[in-house]
């Protein structure tokens, strides 16, 4: 157990780690924005009754919720390029996997959130002459979104953790940089400890904020 810790190689490579961190955040932010937007559309489609709209949306949600996200990323990186007309690099493949995965999960959040709004709210909107879209936009969504916020923030937390999977297909995010540095400098203990701490420092405040926010929401009813 007499291991001598030596963090100098980690500190010496801080520029590489910073680039990795940047790439992690870029990947996470891109997929969050795209995933939530797509999730809203898919969630809306799942809320409709017409089978031609409902079924594809349901199939999409079930497939992406019930397969491991790493398999999705690997599929988009190794399998998809064979039939894709455009070239797929590691960033595109990782973004595709993470975005579609996030979309599938957030579609369910949207659907549950909209469903949680009382029926009387829809009817009241209708009674004062609003169209379906108006009822949704002006009455239902503003109430539902407040309830959905904690679930979305949890998705963001999960997504930030999942960006580390892009290292498997050699996208230069934080985990991948750590792998490179530890192979070059033979310092896996220091490197992987530090990288875990960086992820913790990045994600824990977000998780803590979600917990606080949930409590506040519960208090205000």
């Amino acid at each position: 157990m007499g291991y001598q810790f030596d963090f100098s190689a980690v500190i010496g490579n801080w520029k590489l780690l910073l680039i990795g961190l940047q790439n992690s955040i870029i990947l996470g932010a891109t997929c969050l924005v795209l995933g939530l937007s797509l999730g809203l559309i898919v969630g809306g489609m799942r809320y409709m009754r017409a089978p031609i709209v409902n079924w594809p949306a349901t199939a999409f949600v079930e497939v992406f919720r019930n397969t491991p996200v790493l398999v999705q990323i690997m599929w988009f990186f190794f399998a998809f390029p064979i039939i894709s007309p455009v070239e797929i690099n590691a960033f595109t493949a990782a973004s595709l996997g993470l975005t579609l995965n996030t979309a599938a999960f957030s579609a369910e959040i949207f659907r549950a959130g909209i469903r949680s709004v009382e029926k009387g709210q829809w009817e009241a909107g209708k009674a004062i002459g609003m169209t379906y879209i108006q009822q949704l936009r002006r009455i239902v969504l503003p109430q539902a979104i407040r309830r959905m916020l904690p679930a979305f923030m949890n998705r963001a937390v999960e997504l930030m953790k999942m960006t580390s999977l892009a290292s498997v297909i050699a996208y230069g995010e934080l985990m991948h940089k750590a792998k490179q540095i530890s192979t070059l400098e033979f310092n896996p203990i220091e490197m992987y400890t530090v990288v875990a701490l960086i992820f913790f420092a990045l994600i824990f405040p977000l998780a803590l904020f979600v917990q606080r926010f949930e409590l506040k929401l519960k208090d205000s009813g």
Binding site: M1, S164, P188, I189, Y192, A196, F200, F204
Partner: peptide
Amino acid sequence: IEFLRTTPPIAQLFWFFFALPILTG
């Protein structure tokens, strides 16, 4: 608990696989 919940599982796995053996022998 918070640490295990908010760090990516791949980072944990690499730590246990690559770092722990050196640390414990």
